[in-house]
């Protein structure tokens, strides 16, 4: 292929994938803001997932529970709690989803900060990043609800057992949220809203990628003779 035969629009695979989009300042701002939001929320989910959220001290039950780990000792014996094992198992998706969403949204942020030219692959990655972040937030909300509302508050901190001639009153434990637990409640309070926001944003971005610019770029080359 000689120099004069090169197509005006390169339609090769990499060129298609790495095609640049020209976006407006307002669109850049939206991408940056969404990227910051995803990074902030995903980082929060990672931090909250790794830290103890609720503790028990003082009485017959001691230890802590978190999303990725728990340690509950009842009368000095460590106990396995089936529902907590399930949450620990599921929390892997929280960590994977959070890291993945940050990794997927960073390229679009990078391009948006640098200028108006954004690689198409970065926009597509951002779509996935927003959806992954949205789904992760929804999963986080469910996990927090089960963990804190049902398990943490459901474990009896005081117990009385009947004996033949009276009762055995176990020393009550003090249960409470850790700082991370209180923060998790705050994040969870807005998780559903942000989750919907991110999925809707991903939908719009996907629509934007598909319809507008690609339609223009895919138009056949016209030699200019309109007569």
């Amino acid at each position: 292929m000689t120099r004069g035969d090169e197509p005006l629009v390169d339609t090769g695979f990499l060129a298609r994938v790495l095609r640049y989009y020209w976006i407006s300042t307002r669109q850049r701002l939206v991408l940056i803001l969404l990227g910051v939001l995803v990074s902030f929320l995903s980082s929060s989910v990672i931090i909250v997932s790794l830290l103890p959220l609720y503790y028990y001290r003082g009485g017959y039950i001691q230890g802590y529970i978190g999303l990725t780990s728990y340690r509950i000792a009842i009368l000095e014996r460590y106990s396995r709690i089936a529902v907590l094992d399930s949450i620990v198992h599921l929390s892997l998706m929280l960590l994977v989803g959070s890291f993945l969403s940050i990794a997927l949204t960073v390229p679009s942020m990078y391009y948006s900060v640098r200028g108006r030219r954004v690689a198409r692959i970065a926009l597509e990655a951002a779509v996935v990043g927003y959806i992954v972040a949205g789904l992760t937030l929804a999963l986080f909300l469910s996990s927090i609800r089960v963990l804190l509302a049902e398990v943490a508050l459901g474990l009896p901190v005081s117990l009385v057992e009947a004996t033949r001639f009276g009762q055995l009153v176990f020393h009550a434990s003090r249960g409470g949220y850790t700082s991370a637990g209180l923060y998790a409640l705050e994040v969870a309070r807005y998780s559903l809203h942000f989750s919907i926001l991110l999925v809707v944003a991903a939908g719009f971005l996907h629509l934007y990628i598909q319809r507008y610019y690609e339609d223009l770029l895919d138009m056949p080359l016209i030699d200019g003779n309109f007569s």
């Binding site: 695979f13 994938v17 779509v127 996935v128 992954v132 789904l135 990628i209 598909q210 690609e214």
Partner: peptide, 16 residues
Amino acid sequence: VFAEPGYIAFLLVAAY
């Protein structure tokens, strides 16, 4: 062979 615009995202979301 190339991917239509937006389909890479679609595939990645489906995979996830």
